[in-house]
Amino acid sequence: MPKRTKIDIIGDMLSSIIDKGGKIKPTHLMYKSNMAHKQMGTYLDELVEKELVQKIKVSNFDYIILTDKGTEFLNKLKQMRDFEKAFGL
């Protein structure tokens, strides 16, 4: 299997959140997007900084939610993937 690029990893993370209804626990996100703890932390910080996701607390549990900007970014990513697929890039 080819090595995932940065954009692939971000796409997998955002898709995992969508699959869980837009809200996911950090550990679940780590497993679902096949990442190591440290690696996920770095990526998560970047996603939060870019306002693609948001960290929230619900009944003492940490959750990560997808923002509107994140949803929009994921749409663009899907368009790009379909475009690549159509042209066979």
Binding site: N75, K78, Q79, R81, D82, F83, A86
Partner: peptide, 11 residues
């Protein structure tokens, strides 16, 4: 049309 469908279907 192909290009528009790629954009629309992805959304």
């Amino acid at each position: 049309a192909s290009f528009a469908m790629v954009l629309r279907d992805a959304k």
